[in-house]
Design a binder for these strands. Structure first.
Lengths: 171, 171
DNA sequence: ATCGTTGCAAACGTTTTGCATAAGG
DNA sequence: CCTTATGCAAAACGTTTGCAACGAT
């Protein structure tokens, strides 16, 4: 399994919101006639506990194992992640052929730099990108829902590491 | 299987190149000490025959079936697509959890609008996106290799279709 | 003659499904 | 009580791999 590094060097500031993720999820469930179960409450807690990019496997690894308290089965994790996305709590995008999730609710819109060496995702915001998006969409009479912009390359730390290794090779 | 529509409404103009894809692939193979087989020659022909976005399954569907002349097995198709990408003939990107390919060699850099209704990919070029990419990368001391920018939404045709359906509903 | 390539079958990793049981409202 | 949610097992999906036979140079 490939696992992207869950950190990001420059955390963006949270946007002020009136409800906690749990409250907002409750509202979503009620509006849909769905139920808030122990598993869902527990997963909300686990997911919004810390701000990180993660995939389903990384989340499952951090959950209690089978037999332990608060165990949640793999299918339920997948089903619940989908609910979180539908509820607007999480953002999903594809990276290296699997789904990666990040906080959406109460978090500013942003895009990513992706280091192909250490698999770190670095967030950045850009106002121009939204303008550009609108310009292009208008030109094609296209109704924009959202976008994905990801810049692939090598981050500063990995570049430095590589340079250091090269120097050592020469000695 | 999900299959994106293979057309794109406004084809970009080909860039002038000195070699055909086959010639360029031959050069690549020789530089790597690899061999050009019947299967590879046939796949080059099939892939560069028409300009479309396609995934592995769509390509395989268009190839002769098992038992017929020029049959190429599924693993070989996958292995060859990878070679084409390595050789710079094709571009690969992820869409809805699978790999999509498009011509790279002799074709200008561009990004995509993706209609989530009809799954059509529409190409567009933007000079600002490269500038923006550089600005962001410099700010994070990031070494850019490339980027993916895809705008999700609904294309003009699908919007018109929907409006027409709504009108009919009212009658 | 060598060594890369092919087709087959089987595996892979991720995600989804059918179904019987459990539990929220 | 009614319906949604869960866990289990198994399937689905796109893709990759090991290997023996084949074929290009």
């Amino acid at each position: 399994m490939t696992t992207p590094a869950p950190n990001h060097s420059q955390p963006l500031e949270a946007v002020a919101v009136s409800m906690t993720p749990l409250q907002r999820f409750d509202e979503y469930l009620q509006s849909k006639g769905l139920r808030n179960t122990e598993q869902r409450k527990f997963l909300i807690e686990q997911v919004f506990n810390r701000h990180e990019h993660f995939d389903a496997d990384q989340l499952i690894d951090q959950l209690p194992a089978k037999g332990q308290a608060n165990y949640v089965s793999r299918p339920t994790v997948y089903r619940t992640l989908r609910e979180f996305v539908d509820a607007g709590l999480l953002n999903r995008f594809e990276l290296d052929g699997r789904s990666v999730y990040e906080h959406d609710y109460g978090y500013p819109e942003h895009d990513h730099l992706y280091c192909t060496k250490c698999r770190k995702l670095i967030e950045f915001t850009s106002e121009e990108i939204l303008q550009l998006r609108e310009t292009v969409a208008k030109r094609h009479r296209f109704r924009v829902r959202d976008h994905r912009f990801i810049i692939h390359g090598v981050c500063d730390e990995c570049t430095k590491l590589r340079n250091r290794d090269r120097k050592q090779d020469r000695v």
